[in-house]
C-alpha cells in the first residue's frame, strides 16, 4: 500500500506545473508561429489559385473560346429565326461544334480549372 501511496504522491508532484515567469511570452510565441503558419498557408493557397487560374485562362484563350462563343451564339439565333420547323438544323450546328478541335481545348481548360480547384482544396486541408 505504501508503494501505491508513494506513486500517487509522485503523480501529484508531476501534475503540479512549475511556474514560469515568461509563461505569457511563451504563449505569445506559439500564437505568432501559428499565425505565421496560417499566413504561409494562405499565400500558398492564393498562389495555387493564381497558377491554376492562369493555366485555365490560357487554355481558354488558346482554344479560341471567343470564336466558339460567337459560333454558339450564332447557331441559336439562326434557329430562332428559322423557326421550329428547322429544328434539324440544330443537330447540324451541334455536330459542327463537337467536331471542332477547339472543343478539346475548351474541355482541357475546364479540366485545368478543376485541377486547380482540387489542388487548392488539398492545400487548404493540409
Amino acid at each position: 500500500m505504501a508503494e501505491v501511496d508513494f506513486e500517487r504522491r509522485i503523480e501529484r508532484l508531476f501534475a503540479d506545473a512549475p511556474a514560469f515567469g515568461d509563461a505569457e511570452a511563451f504563449a505569445q510565441r506559439v500564437e505568432r508561429r501559428l499565425d505565421r503558419g496560417w499566413a504561409t498557408r494562405r499565400v500558398l493557397i492564393g498562389f495555387a489559385g493564381v497558377v491554376g487560374g492562369v493555366i485555365g485562362a490560357s487554355q481558354l484563350v488558346l482554344s479560341n473560346f471567343a470564336t466558339d462563343v460567337q459560333a454558339a451564339a450564332a447557331g441559336p439565333a439562326r434557329l430562332l429565326t428559322a423557326g421550329v420547323s428547322q429544328v434539324a438544323s440544330q443537330s447540324d450546328w451541334m455536330s459542327a461544334l463537337t467536331g471542332a478541335g477547339n472543343v478539346v481545348w475548351l474541355a482541357a481548360g475546364l479540366a485545368g480549372l478543376a485541377v486547380a480547384f482540387v489542388i487548392t482544396r488539398m492545400i487548404e486541408e493540409i
Binding site: 508531476f14 501534475a15 506545473a17 512549475p18 511556474a19 514560469f20 509563461a23 505569457e24 511563451f26 504563449a27 505569445q28 506559439v30 500564437e31 501559428l34 499565425d35 496560417w38
Partner: peptide
Amino acid sequence: TGDRRAFGELVRRHGSAVRGLLRR
C-alpha cells in the same frame, strides 16, 4: 475550427506544464 486565439488560451493554461515536463 481554426480559431488560433482559442488555442492560445490552451497554451496559456498548459504551457508551463509541458515545458516543465520536458525539463524534467
